[in-house]
């Protein structure tokens, strides 16, 4: 899973896609996840990292992450 190369992600959670002109905001966890994806981590690594840090169970977390990745892909932010 790869974020498209030209996507800009700012410190405060704004995302800009120069090829479509769309911009987005992320909540804090959304920003954290997107950063981790950018660093090249895969979903199971991200799951483990977040499980260690946040008060959330594994099944729910996997569910939310897959929803989120789906949102990224619906919004054309992921490489095919």
């Amino acid at each position: 899973m790869l974020i498209k190369g030209n996507i800009a992600l700012s410190e405060n959670g704004f995302v800009f896609n120069p090829s479509t002109g769309d911009s987005f905001t992320l909540n804090n966890i959304g920003k954290e996840v997107l950063m981790l994806i950018k660093e090249g981590k895969n979903i199971s690594q991200i799951t483990d990292l977040l499980l260690g840090k946040y008060d959330v169970d594994k099944i729910s977390l996997e569910r939310y992450l897959s929803d989120f990745v789906n949102d990224l892909s619906v919004n054309n932010l992921l490489e095919e």
Partner: peptide, 14 residues
């Protein structure tokens, strides 16, 4: 160590 409060990750189009 107590864990942080979790919120679903979201992305919203502007």
């Amino acid at each position: 160590m107590s864990k942080l409060m979790f919120e679903r990750p979201t992305i919203t189009r502007l």
